[in-house]
Amino acid sequence: MKSKSKIDLIFKICVASFLVFYALTIFILLGWGLIQSFRYIDDYTYNGALSLPTKIEGFEAEFYNALKFGNYKTIMEHFYCESKVSYFTMFDSVNAVSINHGDVGVGGLLFNTLYMAVICSFAQVFITYLVAFLCAKYKFKFSAFIYGLVIFMMTVPTVGTQPATVKLLQDLNLFGRYGGMLLMRCCFGGMYFLVFYGFFEGLPDSYVEAAEIDGASQLNILLTIIIPLGIKTILTITLILFVANWNDYSMSYIYMPSIPTLALAVYELAHIGYKHSSLTGDVYKIAGTMMLAIPITLIFVLFRDKIMGDISAGGLKG
């Protein structure tokens, strides 16, 4: 019995130590990034990356103070991302076009990011909720077919469909358009479909039947009973997808280069330096990066329990 509690204690201490170490690495990295984002370029170059903000004699920093809050202002003024559509010639060179819509500034980048993070996320969650409701509560054969198809899509992987997706968007004249982005996101399936489906399976039919007896139309039932019942879950999952879409730069990178987002602009700032001649220097790269991280961290602080609680509840229980 004594050796058992000794093993338990060692196990707990080992895991806790590892976790403390992990937490430290996260704090060090983010803390380091935040501090560096307030430094002068001269200070960073002269004193190195491991130093704290310091005044340097003879350099610009001397005249003010050690911290330069203007880095963020400079980024706001000069941050941009090129908006372009380059249709590929290989499918149909008659339609081969390369349109440059010009540079999108911070305001435009924020608009595109919010469009993707708010509207596209909400549309995706709402469609998933709606289809799960229809499949669970309308016992047509087609409902069973859709459910089977979702399971099939989750079980059988398909790889390398990006070229065909790009071609489809181009054929529909939706490549590089807001409508195309929205249509791509109006999909259902995956884990959240199963979560909603399970929710509706457990919901007694009497809710809907009572409303039908009272003469409510199907649309009324949807708007006044079904949506209010799940509005909290809808908003919570929208919040989770908001985080994912805010961070996503591959959507703009591959499918929607004419709708650049903040994440894509940060990627270009960090890795395609020549596009940002007025923002050269690691300090700006780091400050740009923090600009992407800070809003999402604030949202997390406000809605922490919602975001994390829902994922746990939606886990595939054993």
Binding site: W246, Y249, Y267, A270, T289, L292, A293, I296, F300
Partner: peptide, 21 residues
């Protein structure tokens, strides 16, 4: 909460900071 951070903040942010540091 800490273990969830890499899913919350873009991997791009961590990658750039990790790269620079």
């Amino acid at each position: 909460v800490i273990l969830y951070m890499p899913a919350l903040i873009s991997s791009l942010v961590f990658a750039i900071l990790f790269n620079r540091l």
